[in-house]
């Protein structure tokens, strides 16, 4: 498959909640192998846009195409296969609290109804190993896990089906710096091993600078810029200036851009 094939295509998207306009004419394409970071102020509709890509919400107008198929009017079979080809890490993890860690990760695999149980066991333990969760935690319930652990188990579940497309909603929010660092490393390793396209919503400049290959900026209901981080920060826009060129932003960028 050529690299110029957009894996996600959003065209002319409008979102309104009552009379409140969230998005105005947003068009955005995501290409295979990219790590796209969606940034924007609070209330700028980043999470809403992510949910529209996931098919959890429908925009007032415009189209969202995932892997070449429209998100909203494809049949049941197709919609199911599209969902199996993408994984989602929700902000709070969204682990099923009635199932233990092992069963949480095994659930999407069992739902395929084609894998033998021994293979599911190996896959689950492999994913747990990848996110660096020790095997003895496999029988714990989500309520017994710490916040960082929940994130990692949720990532393991998102990766259970080896998706081509991974959505991350604030992946490092609520993690301590060391955990964020290892999370970033993890994403980088995964990208080398699997052909992954990642779309993430984040506020964390360090994460953004470390792993994103492209940044899309949402402000004033529009997509004001999209491109490499180095190009984005040269754009003269009040939100971009505040976000990237404040003191914290400059620190994060200095580390990321000057050191190769």
């Amino acid at each position: 498959m050529s690299n110029n094939d957009p894996i996600i295509e959003i065209e002319g998207l409008y979102t309104r909640f009552g009379s409140h306009v969230i998005h105005e004419n947003i068009s955005l394409s995501v290409y295979r192998g990219e790590i796209l970071a969606l940034v924007g102020g609070s209330g700028s509709g980043k999470t809403t846009l992510l949910r529209q890509m996931l098919g959890l919400e429908t925009p007032a107008q415009g189209s969202v195409k995932i892997l070449g198929h429209s998100r909203y009017d494809c049949g049941l079979e197709l919609s199911r296969s599209l969902r199996n080809r993408s994984g989602v890490l929700f902000q709070q993890g969204a682990l099923f609290s009635a199932l233990n860690v092992y069963d949480n990760i095994a659930l999407p695999l069992r739902e395929l109804h084609c894998l033998p149980e021994e293979m599911i066991r190996d896959l689950v333990m492999l994913k747990l190993g990848m996110v660096e969760v020790a095997a003895e935690h496999a029988n714990k319930m989500p309520a017994e896990l710490s916040g960082g652990m929940i994130k990692r188990v949720a990532l393991a579940r998102a990766l259970a089906l080896d998706p081509e497309l991974l959505f991350l909603d604030e992946p490092t929010a609520g993690l301590d710096p060391a955990l964020s660092e290892s999370f970033v490393k993890l994403i980088q390793t995964l990208r080398q091993e699997l052909t992954l396209t990642i779309i993430m919503v984040t506020h964390d400049l360090d994460t953004l600078a470390a792993i994103s290959t492209r940044v899309a900026v949402l402000a004033d209901q529009r997509l004001v810029a999209s491109g490499k981080l180095a190009d984005i920060i040269k754009i003269d826009h009040p939100f971009i200036k505040d976000f990237f060129l404040g003191e914290r932003g400059r620190n994060a960028l200095r580390n990321a851009l000057t050191l190769p």
Binding site: Y102, R121, D122, V124, M125, L126, L128, G129, M130, A134, A135, E136, A138, N139, Q192, E193
Partner: peptide
């Protein structure tokens, strides 16, 4: 080489703990 990395992971996989 990228397949090599996958199998290297597999060699390190822990066995699943026995259910209580």
């Amino acid at each position: 080489p990228e397949q090599e990395r996958l199998f290297a992971h597999l060699e390190k996989v822990h066995p699943a703990p026995k259910p209580v």
